[in-house]
């Protein structure tokens, strides 16, 4: 028996919005410690990994490990039927070929139930080694989204260059070129606007903007995004999954990490 309840169903909607264009089908691995998902995009250039901690749920029960393979586009459609303030429960019985989604409205007298068919998917899990990265940039998620969108007007790829003075995002295309430079800054009043750069050695790497723009669909989950880079390894773009409660308290319940293979010169 698996049962997981989130008090703010909108979090699950945001997670699905963040991944369902990159991957259409994937398996959730459910264990006593939480739910996780790992999947490559169809062209095998990027990888998305979602982790939800069991203790981030208001109720979490997983009697034995389960793999719930499903069509994420369909899951997204069903989650659209939940109100943003609904409590959402996911239930799966051992050996069943479907899961149940239960939406409880805040008024406490309206309950909706949906079932979604499970699928047997060929799992291709990649092992991601512990890596210490040369460069880590923590910046406002909305700023990163804006930079990726703007530079995609200029070209298909962005070169991220880190030096002592800051981080440069630049693109070149038929019409010309463009760049955005950020230097470290911190504000006590608005920590969500901070740019934090930690660098061991200068570095420059190029990535396809098509994928980065897909990753930024996770922007509504968290005010800050973390980029981790090292030479000759994929870029990691991480968003914390933050649940905002009624009292405006913020609770970190997991994360989404996107991994993107670099473009390399001949």
């Amino acid at each position: 028996m698996f049962e997981a309840k989130l008090d703010r169903g909108i979090v699950l909607k945001k997670i699905l919005d963040a991944i369902n264009q990159l991957v259409n089908e994937a398996s959730w691995e459910c264990t006593s410690s939480g739910m996780s998902l790992q999947a490559m995009d169809t062209s095998h250039v990027s990888l998305v990994a979602v982790n939800l901690n069991g203790d981030g749920f208001s109720k979490f029960r997983c009697d034995r490990n389960m793999v719930l393979g499903m069509n994420l586009v369909n899951l997204s459609k069903i989650l659209k039927c939940a109100g943003n303030d609904d409590k959402v429960t996911i239930k799966a019985a051992d050996g069943d070929d479907k899961i149940k989604l239960i939406f409880e409205a805040p008024n406490e007298y309206e309950v909706s139930q949906y079932e979604i068919k499970l699928m047997n998917l060929d799992a291709e899990y990649l092992g991601i080694p512990e890596t210490s990265y040369n460069v880590t940039v923590k910046m406002p998620a909305a700023k990163f989204q804006r930079i990726c969108r703007d530079l995609n007007q200029i070209g298909d790829a962005v070169t991220i260059s880190c030096t002592k003075s800051g981080v440069d995002f630049s693109a070149t295309g038929d019409l010309g070129n463009g760049s955005v430079s950020l230097s470290q800054n911190s504000s006590f009043d608005k920590p969500e606007d901070n740019v934090t750069i930690s660098m061991q050695e200068p570095l420059s790497q190029t990535f396809a903007l098509k994928y980065l723009n897909q990753f930024t669909k996770a922007t509504p989950l968290c005010s800050q995004v973390t980029l981790s880079l090292s030479p000759d390894v994929p870029l990691v773009v991480e968003y914390k999954i933050i649940e905002e409660n009624e009292e405006d308290s913020k609770n970190e319940i997991g994360h989404i990490r996107y991994y993107l293979a670099p473009k390399i010169d001949d």
Binding site: L47, G127, A208, P234, A261, I264, D265
Partner: peptide
């Protein structure tokens, strides 16, 4: 122009 690499090139199957 630069060539796009694949993610499996960096991370092996688990």
């Amino acid at each position: 122009s630069a060539n796009q690499t694949k993610i499996e090139h960096y991370y092996g199957l688990r």
